[in-house]
Nucleic acid binder design. Structure first.
Length: 802
RNA sequence: GCCCGGGUGGCGAAAUCGGUAGACGCAUGGCACUUAAAAUGCCAAGGGAGGCAACUCCCAUGCAGGUUCGAGUCCUGCCCCGGGCACCA
């Protein structure tokens, strides 16, 4: 036998990465694919620290899947890019005093180097960066599509203002009242003119479509809860003066127990229904609430406060006059900004009624102390509806009130419109020009992109105006409509707008005259498989879906759901905590790849635990993967010398069983068990003598190729193949052979294991029973008793019940 | 408070349908090779009890019950950990 060369991962990995690049191995023909497969992973934000093991974990899993599909005969398009705009980059730039336009290219260089080194099957011809004017030109174009369709509008609204970022942040970026990026900084309430996208108009479609998407359940649930549909009714409470107060409730069945009304302090009807003698107290309370920030109002002190307006409204069910109050526990932005208070059956109303000594009337029978909130009860004190179960009463009472014009069914969503304005500068300028005569005017398409000017002083200030306003030549501009004096919008758009459409751009990056090429889009989209983390379950994924729906309606794309198949991977944590710079537990994979090689590291990440669950990163155990590859290495080299030879039956059977399992597991992203199966195969081959022909090794190499692509290529070449292993086909298996062989059947007596018999697969119950009764220990337990019943599970188990 | 996950050896974890709990791997111990160490190979190994031993028995999947011939898996009630939402009417 010829000597086996040493396995030197660094050398062979560099060699194959170079060959792939030169041979364009990873670049499918985008115009004439036979079987297109768009394999997408969530593009990274190129941070200054570099790609960490969390990113690499996600990319490795997605890359394995893409390579697997490639071996199954698909033309796999696996693009990568950089989500490089946004407040993170800007804040980092501010901290180090270097302009992000200088920092970002450096960071991208680092990421690009890391992404090449780990061996991703990326098509680098189609790399993109959201900060490239060639890209954000079309981000702005999308804004204009929404603007012209009436889906982008300005609204003065209470917004979340982060005093550290000195910018508005989206509801999604507020965690428990604190800024997502600055966990020690409370977000304040400010009233500003902002651009919003009317995503709430799509709430029902976004929700309903979830049922027919092939997505991880975890992601679907997160999105469903975020949209937050509530089915209820709007009920009308009339005042003697003729004002009609509408209250949204999910429990119209309890309307007989509504003993007072509460309006949000900002409710437009407050002035009208306030009695003169209460006006001073009411105004004082409203000022007090307005001075509070969103934090203390929403999550801070939840002690109930409020003021009686001095007036009354009629309960539409009982006809009684009930007092009207304002209180800050009622929020203007949800429902109608007014509630009917049913203190007997709502915790908050109960608390409020107790502290202000308001009447409490029980209308649902319950054994529990009040407030009893369960919707599974029977009505009482509800006139003709007494005795009706709540769930039936719900519809019956709404129908009854409806006939009298005092109520109607209503569906309410928790989802808010998407505020996209950011008072910062590191983003695509919102392409709007304000004209005193014409109002806000969209920048004409031929003037796009509105290039982000490279200002020297990019620090934000507390004015709430973007630093871009200081750039005079940029700021003052002619109105495209009337030619008069105009001023540019100085806010930039939310980063999530950049990432809401990147999947549309990838196949069309070479076109500058269109956002995406219609033919390419028809060929490659929607995305065949999308793999990413649940940290984007509600932001990125919801916004992408919304933008795609709009584009579909406007005739720009032919589908309304961009990601028909999505799988969420787990999170890699370190020492029990999420990796973050502030915790100082970020692990950069470069050192480990340097020590072990990319192949070992890739497989190790996948062997750490289930891909869809994630796990705690630690390096002990990586030697197990390396030992495995060290066993594959000589086996393949010896196979060439051994030459073609029939496989021993045990090896053949195990091979086909392994193919069956690795195929199913890789398809299901169960990479850890697929790797275990390949290890078992190698262990068996070694137990059987250790020298086998190419018949036993080549299928293994193909299965291994997605996991350890460089090593697989090297060994494939060593076996005499001139072409890349990724031109090979995924092996099939012989189901008969995989299933054949002897099986060990467990013999139980009264459910306890008492013996085992080995029979050939598919043996009859009678035969197994006969064999079982010969077993000494079975007899010990069974003898002298009559077997009342036997339970036989073919090929698995026989249970004798005495 | 509500909605999702999850809890299995010293550790990471396996276990279509309810059917041999602990595959695969790490760490550990012993042996071989070696002047020695590393590497490698072979063997052992959930806990407990009995036995010189091969072996035998009992207990074990967060806790307490239940259904079943049989429960890690199904049902009921709890405890703990992770994530999401939260004065959302």
């Amino acid at each position: 036998m010829s000597p086996v060369p040493a396995y030197d991962p660094q050398a062979i990995e560099a060699k194959w990465q170079d060959r792939w690049a030169r041979a364009h191995t990873n670049e499918p023909d985008l115009d004439r694919p036979r079987q297109p497969f768009y394999n997408l992973m969530m593009f990274p934000y190129p941070s200054a620290e570099g790609l960490h093991v969390g990113n690499m974990f996600a990319f490795t899993g997605a890359d394995i899947y893409g390579r697997f599909k490639r071996l199954q005969g698909y033309d796999v398009f696996e693009p990568i890019g950089f989500d490089a705009f946004g407040i993170h980059s800007e804040n980092y730039a501010l901290a180090v005093g270097t302009h992000p336009a200088k920092l970002i290219p450096r960071n991208i260089d680092t990421f690009r180097r890391q992404l090449r080194r780990f061996g991703g099957m990326f098509d680098w011809r189609h790399e993109l960066s959201t900060t490239d004017p060639r890209y954000y030109k079309w981000t702005q174009w999308i804004f204009l599509q929404l603007f012209h369709a009436g889906l982008a509008f300005r609204k003065k609204a209470a917004v979340n203002w982060c005093p550290k970022d000195m910018s508005v942040v989206a509801n999604e970026q507020v965690i428990n009242g604190y800024c997502e990026r600055h966990p020690d900084t409370k977000v304040e309430q400010r009233f500003l003119e902002q651009w919003f996208f009317a995503i709430t108009r799509y709430a029902d479609r976004l929700l309903a479509n979830l049922d027919r998407l092939d997505w991880s359940d975890s992601t679907r649930t997160l999105q469903r809860n975020w949209i937050g549909r509530s089915d209820g009714a709007e009920l009308v409470f009339e005042t003697p003066a003729g004002a009609r107060v509408t209250a949204f409730t999910t429990r119209p069945d309890t309307v007989f127990g509504a003993t007072y009304l509460v309006l949000a302090p900002e409710h437009p009807l407050v002035d009208e229904v306030t009695a003169e003698e209460q006006r001073r107290a009411v105004n004082a309370y409203r000022r007090e609430v307005a001075a509070k920030d969103l934090v203390s109002r929403r999550v801070g002190d939840k002690t109930k406060t409020g003021v009686f307006l001095g007036s009354y409204a009629r309960n539409p069910a009982t006809g009684e006059a009930i007092p009207i109050w304002i209180a800050d526990y009622v929020l203007m932005e949800y429902g109608s900004g007014a509630i009917m208070a049913v203190p007997a059956h709502d915790r908050r109303d109960y608390e409020f009624a107790t502290s202000f000594r308001l009447p409490i009337r029980q209308v649902v029978r319950s054994d529990e102390p009040l407030p009893s909130v369960s919707p599974d009860g029977v009505l009482m004190n509800s006139g003709r509806f007494d005795g009706l179960p709540c769930r039936e009463a719900h519809g019956a009472i709404v129908a009854w009130l409806h006939t009298r014009g005092l109520g109607a069914p209503k569906v309410q969503y928790r989802l808010h419109d998407w505020c996209i304005s950011r008072q910062r500068f590191w983003g695509p300028p919102i392409p709007i020009i304000y004209c005193d005569r014409c109002g806000p005017v969209g920048v004409p398409v031929e003037d796009l992109p509105v290039v982000l000017p490279l200002i020297e002083d990019f620090r934000p200030d507390a004015s709430g105006v973007s630093p871009l306003a200081r750039h005079r030549e940029w700021y003052y501009v002619r109105c495209p409509q009337c030619g008069g004096e105009g001023r540019r919008e100085t806010d930039v758009s939310d980063t999530f707008l950049d990432s809401a459409w990147y999947h549309l751009r990838y196949p069309s990056t070479e076109f500058d005259d269109r956002p995406w090429d219609p033919q390419r889009t028809k060929t490659w989209l929607p995305v065949t498989s999308y793999i990413g983390g649940n940290e984007h379950a509600v932001l990125h994924l919801l916004y992408s879906r919304f933008i795609t729906m709009v584009l579909q309606e406007l005739g720009h794309v032919h589908f309304e759901e961009p990601f028909p198949k999505l799988r969420a991977h787990g999170l890699i944590i370190k020492d029990g905590a999420k990796m973050s710079k502030s915790r100082g537990n970020v692990v950069i994979p470069d050192a480990a790849i340097g020590t072990w090689g990319a192949d070992t590291f890739r497989m190790y990440l996948m062997f750490l635990g289930p891909f869809q669950e994630g796990g705690d990163f630690r390096e002990d155990g990586i030697t197990g993967i390396r030992r495995f590859l060290d066993k594959v290495w000589p086996l393949a080299h010896h196979a060439r010398d051994a030459g073609s030879q029939p496989l021993p039956l045990a090896v053949a059977r195990k091979l086909h069983q392994t193919i069956r399992k690795v195929t199913a597991d890789t398809e299901g992203l169960d990479f850890n068990t697929a790797i275990a199966a390949m290890m078992e195969y190698i262990n068996l081959v070694r137990d059987e003598g250790g020298v086998v022909g190419p018949e036993a090794v080549e299928p293994l190499l193909v299965m291994l190729a997605p996991y350890a692509p460089h090593l697989a290529e090297e060994l494939w070449a060593a076996l005499g193949h001139g072409e890349s292993i990724f031109g090979a086909r995924w092996p099939g298996y012989d189901a008969q052979l995989a299933a054949a062989g002897d099986v060990e059947i467990v013999v139980q007596v009264n459910g306890k294991v008492r013996g085992r018999v080995t029979v050939s697969r598919g043996a009859t119950e009678a035969h197994v029973l006969e064999r079982a009764l010969q077993d000494e220990s079975v007899r010990k337990f069974a003898d002298g008793n009559t077997v009342r019943k036997t339970i036989y599970v073919p090929d698995r188990l026989l249970n004798l019940v005495l």
